[in-house]
Design a binder for these strands. Structure first.
Lengths: 234, 234
DNA sequence: TGTATATTATTTGTCGACAAGAATTTTATC
DNA sequence: GATAAAATTCTTGTCGACAAATAATATACA
């Protein structure tokens, strides 16, 4: 008898498959590795991850639940499109969540929260320094998400994180070239926000968050307007 | 050859199974037919609906995504508990959503929206008249959900509907006996809210929605406090 | 009798296969 | 050659079965 390789290699822990597929697909969607409209093929994914279609499908059901993919019955499933027509509803929600989460952070944060927030702010400042637009987007989102966590309201953090994800996707569309940069001013505004949170000044937290959010929305709109002009010109 | 019944009976349309299970479980959870903590057995459901476990599981994954059930890996899955400890976060979110959706309705509603809203208000008034507490809860939720729809912001309506569902579950816990009733005053407040929406008076919409929301929160808290006393007394 | 270990049973996660529905290609008819 | 019908291919939804993880029970031992 020859030494047959009974290949116990595929040792992947039971239940870890769906999470792996979910996390990876989620990242690829948010990073636009899978741009909006990309078809998603179950069998292809099954081969890629060397597992059956069942766990793949579970991951897809979850992603569909978060609105990251669209599934037409009995037909193809694809990466969800970005709804540019109703962009203003996105901005409305984003500004409001910026405000309310910052206010709650001022009210309910604990000392250890500030450490986390400051760490994210340091990363954001570094990204601005390096003029790395993609890193700016990611670290800015992480910064505000950390503030929201300090506010300790799961309903708000849930919606807010979703909005930040959607924003990340929208901005990726425009920052592919790394040639633009958020102004230094945003770094200073972040520092001010940290200060009022630490101070537990709720009113001022709301005011600064509102200004900051509107700045960011304005920046995004400017960006889109510029691209629109380019599109028309072509 | 005998006439063998090839039994083409189970004719359930392909893909309709998951929706059926999802809808029914959702209703049973929100109506407390399945109270918080109830174990959910896949094979039992499979037998009940005469289908395999696969579509059952898909429905469960969706419900888990909405936080209506909790799934411990490799172990049981059960109806999600109601988080009474962090109730204030629920109230915060609810009040804010009442306000923002009412404001947006004043801003963006179309004539046909008002018809729908008024129809729901009529049902609510009827429930109050009949002193049917459970119907009051349901029709009140439908009324405010319709207002939110008129505001046309999917991010807000999504969160708001979730909050209303959770509220429905909480209130069912206390209104099992049908012996209580929401005051007639809420009917009048609803009428006032409809009026300011129709008037497109955004500031006043916010003010009335805030007052109304706080009334409702106050009512719920009073209810819970009373039950607490009872619990302690026993 | 109480605790630790081994055995059994139950339930979940994964798999491969099959069938239904839609898209695509081929064939037939004018 | 164009259109309609039929056949084929391809993808998804569902199924029954099996294996891993856990819970429950039984057994051994002090």
């Amino acid at each position: 008898m020859t030494d047959i390789d009974t290949s116990p290699i595929p040792e992947r822990k039971r239940g870890s498959g769906v999470k792996m597929v979910y996390d990876l697909l989620r990242d690829e969607i948010l990073d636009l590795v899978l741009p909006p409209g990309s078809p998603i093929d179950e069998v292809q994914l099954a081969e890629r991850f060397k597992m059956s279609r069942t766990p793949i499908r579970e991951a897809l059901v979850r992603l569909a639940g978060e609105g990251l993919i669209d599934t037409l019955p009995n037909r193809s499933t694809m990466v969800a499109n970005i709804d540019f027509l109703n962009m203003h509803t996105f901005f409305d929600a984003l500004v409001l969540m910026y405000r309310v989460t910052t206010k709650l952070a001022a009210q309910y944060h604990r000392p250890e929260d500030l450490k986390v927030i400051r760490a994210h702010q340091a990363e954001f400042a570094a990204a601005v320094q390096a003029q790395d637009a993609l890193a700016m987007i990611a670290t800015n989102a992480a910064f505000h998400s950390a503030i929201a966590e300090a506010g300790r309201n799961a309903y708000f953090t849930g919606l807010f994180n979703r909005l930040l994800d959607e924003g990340r996707r929208m901005l990726r569309l425009y920052y592919q070239s790394y040639d633009d940069r958020l102004p230094q001013r945003f770094v200073e505004e972040h520092d001010d926000i940290i200060a009022v949170i630490a101070n537990r000044d709720i009113e001022e937290a709301d005011r600064l968050a509102k200004l900051h959010a509107e700045q960011i929305v304005h920046q995004i709109q400017k960006l889109f307007a510029r691209e629109d002009r380019l599109d028309v010109a072509l």
